[in-house]
Each structure stands twice: as structure tokens, then as C-alpha cells.
Design a protein around this nucleic acid. Structure first.
Length: 381
DNA sequence: AACGAGCGCAACCGCGGGACT
DNA sequence: AAGTCCCGCGGTTGCGCTCGT
């Protein structure tokens, strides 16, 4: 059905399906329950997925100079635009020459070409990269392959229990913002986390009696009918999982009695979910607090002592004034504006003290914002 | 041993946002 | 101000492997 039904037109033999991950296969929740089929049964008809219209593009573009020569550090993004000759009328050209690109699984040769090219020239200019690297792929495909599979700093597979719980907490806060969640898990990609969520964590939460969408007791109706005491027991059981899975270091900040509870008590996560999560018509407008959260992801999440592997991150942490207490167990990771910062217990977030101008601006505006300190344990009482 | 169903995950797609002309 | 483009994101698909019968 899909475009991948056609075998990859690669010259080499089809690549062996690489399975670098070693997740132990989880026992089925129930032989009659298939999450995938369940989701599909609730999903609206899949939208039209054919790639591009069959009519030819209305514009023709040509690059008169290799982008490699112009894509220096800092100027990558606009290199193509400056050297483009428009030879046709208005309209949007396809992202690549579909007719001359490979699809499907990547071959080892393709991987090696991509790795070699990026090692030599760095990331960026994805649109022109395939041609420059001698790959018959579209830029998007190259980007995905690199980010999700070839990047050297990827961990790949074997999610730890702590990562599981962090993902669950982050998902409760952020919803299906996989890239944001991935940003808090070094070495993990959004695609990997998304897949892991859909295949493992959903089931894990269901087994705990929690709804993976709302992070509340599974059946809202049953929950409503459930005695308050029973609801509390269920909730407590859920929280005990967190406590057990995150040994040490995750402390509820005493001055923030329970900011998490305010979030958890709201019906919806921070963002809307896909159509297969809930029937489209059932969506209700998020309460004001949720809408606020959706606009401002100025969050802080406490976490186990963080030891960044990346020297650049270490450097950044140092320059943001985190100092030594950045790695103490009483620190929290601040999620302010997509930036990792640290704060000690009982102190305000200091990530705004960065030297860059944008961050100063953000810090000044952040002073007027409400901050969420989201502990990883005991926060949802 | 053979077969079918279920599952995991790599890779694809369309869309939105921001940058640029 | 409007139009165009690229990048990145979230949702979805389908191949190949594993497991149960």
C-alpha cells in the first residue's frame, strides 16, 4: 500500500535488517489486546498519503555553486537561497526529485557515504546534502537517518527504569512533544522515545491502571464511580512506582508543596493528542492552567544527579552559574526555554543568567512567569 | 516444522513555523 | 505584506522478527 512496498532500488543487495536494540520482549498485556489495532480502530481514516502530485513542479531550481563552499559555520541555513536561480513561475518545488531517489531501508554504503560526508562537512543544508554526498536520497531522509540512527552520540536501546519514569513524567507534563522529551534524555531521539512510548510505556501505564493519555486512573467512568479512597490507593501505587524507580535524588521541594498535583488534576495534558489517542470530537478545551502551560514551557524537573557527557553541555552548565551544586542531589534541572539549567533546592532558577543576549531577554520575561518545579517522586499526591 | 498473529522499529509523510526574498 | 522555502516535528506505515499454536 505505502510507498515502501516497493523494494529499495539500491544497486546493492537489500540490507540486512539491523536490530541494534535489545529490548527484552515484554509479555503481552493480553492476547486479545493489540494496542496498535486498538488505536487504529479508533483512528479516523488515514489521510491521503501519496507523496506529491503527479503533475510536474512548476519551478525549476538550480544551484550554481556547491553549498559546501558557502556553508560555513553559522551561515548554513541560508546558503541555498542566496545561490538559487529561479527559472520558472511561482509555486513550491518538491523537496527532492522523487523519481530519482531511493526509498526504504538504507544500505551500508549509503550510511557510510552519509557519515563520511557529515564528518567532513558537518550537518546542515540537508536539501543539498544528498547530491553533494552522492546519495540518491532526499534531504529529509538523510536528516532522519543521521539524527535517528547514525549520530555517534546515540545510546540506542535498553532504556533504563529511570529513563522510563522520566519519560512518563515528561509526557505527563508535555504531552506528545517527543522532541522536547528527547531533549531531556541525552543520547535518545524523539523517534526512539516515541516508538518506545507506543510499544512499552503505554502498556506499562495500562498495567498500572493509569491512562497513558491523561496519566489518571485508566477508566474515567470507573474512576468517577470509584470511591475516593480507592482512587487514592491507585494513585499512591502509581507514585510508588516512581519512588521505587528513582532511588535517591528526587526530592519534592518543600516550598512547592505540590505544583504537580495542580497539573495532574487537570483533565488534559499540555498539548493535544493525536487522533488515535482520542476521538476527534471528544476533545474538550483545556482548562486555563493547561492553556497557560502550553504557551509557556517554563518548567523545572528535578532529576537524578546529572552528569552531562557532552563537554559543550558541561561548559554551558558552568557558564550559567550552576557551579558545583549543579550535580548535587538537591538540584533540579530547569527546562526553561529549551535550555538545561540547574538550580539548588529552595533557590530560584538561575538559568536566565546566561551570557547570551537572547537568554537575558528570556530571563527578564521569565521573571514575570510562573515556574513549575516538577519533582519526579511524590509529586502527584 | 509450518503457519499465522503480534510486535518492534526504521522510515516515510504532511504540516507548521520561522527565515528569507 | 505577501510569497516561498527549508527544517523540524508528530503521526503513521509496513517490513521483518519472534512467539504461540
Amino acid at each position: 500500500m505505502g510507498p515502501r512496498s516497493a523494494p529499495p532500488p539500491s544497486s546493492s543487495s537489500p540490507p540486512p535488517r539491523i536490530k541494534p536494540t535489545t529490548h527484552p520482549r515484554l509479555p503481552s498485556l493480553s492476547s486479545s489486546l493489540s494496542l496498535k489495532k486498538l488505536a487504529r480502530s479508533h483512528a479516523p481514516p488515514t489521510p491521503h498519503r501519496s507523496s506529491f502530485p503527479s503533475d510536474p513542479p512548476t519551478t525549476t531550481t538550480a544551484y550554481i555553486i556547491s553549498p559546501l563552499l558557502v556553508c560555513g559555520a553559522g551561515g548554513i541555513s541560508s546558503c541555498l537561497r542566496r545561490y538559487r536561480i529561479r527559472a520558472g513561475g511561482m509555486g513550491r518545488s518538491p523537496c527532492c526529485e522523487k523519481a530519482h531517489t531511493n526509498k526504504g531501508a538504507w544500505t551500508k554504503e549509503e550510511d557510510q557515504r552519509l557519515i563520511a560526508y557529515i564528518k567532513a562537512h558537518g550537518e546542515g543544508c540537508w536539501r543539498s546534502l544528498p547530491k553533494a554526498a552522492g546519495l540518491l536520497r532526499c534531504g529529509k531522509s538523510c536528516r532522519l537517518r543521521w539524527i535517528n540512527y547514525l549520530r555517534p552520540d546515540l545510546k540506542r536501546g535498553n532504556f533504563t527504569e529511570e529513563e522510563d519514569e522520566l519519560i512518563i513524567k515528561l509526557h505527563e507534563l508535555l504531552g506528545n512533544k517527543w522532541s522536547l522529551i528527547a531533549g531531556r534524555l541525552p543520547g535518545r531521539t524523539d523517534n526512539e522515545i516515541k516508538n518506545y512510548w507506543n510499544t512499552h510505556i503505554k502498556r506499562k501505564l495500562l498495567a498500572r491502571g493509569m491512562d497513558p493519555h491523561t496519566h489518571r486512573p485508566l477508566n474515567a467512568i470507573a474512576a468517577a464511580a470509584m470511591p475516593a479512597q480507592q482512587q487514592q490507593q491507585l494513585r499512591a501505587a502509581h507514585e510508588r512506582h516512581f519512588a521505587a524507580a528513582t532511588p535517591g535524588g528526587h526530592h519534592l521541594q518543600p516550598q512547592q508543596q505540590d505544583p504537580f498535583a495542580a497539573l495532574s488534576s487537570s483533565a488534559e495534558p499540555a498539548c493535544s493528542h493525536s487522533s488515535d489517542d482520542e476521538p476527534a470530537g471528544s476533545a474538550t478545551p483545556p482548562p486555563p492552567s493547561r492553556r497557560h502551560l502550553g504557551i509557556d514551557l517554563n518548567l523545572s524537573i528535578s532529576l537524578a544527579p546529572y552528569q552531562p557527557d557532552d563537554p559543550a553541555v558541561k561548559q554551558e552548565a558552568a557558564t550559567t552559574g550552576s557551579q558545583n551544586n549543579a550535580t548535587t542531589s538537591t538540584s533540579a534541572v530547569c527546562m526553561c526555554l529549551n535550555r538545561l539549567g540547574f538550580q539548588g533546592a529552595g533557590e530560584g532558577c538561575r538559568c536566565g543568567g546566561a551570557s547570551s543576549v537572547p537568554m537575558q531577554q528570556q530571563a527578564s520575561s521569565a521573571q514575570r512567569m510562573f515556574r513549575f518545579i516538577a519533582p519526579l517522586e511524590g509529586g502527584g499526591q
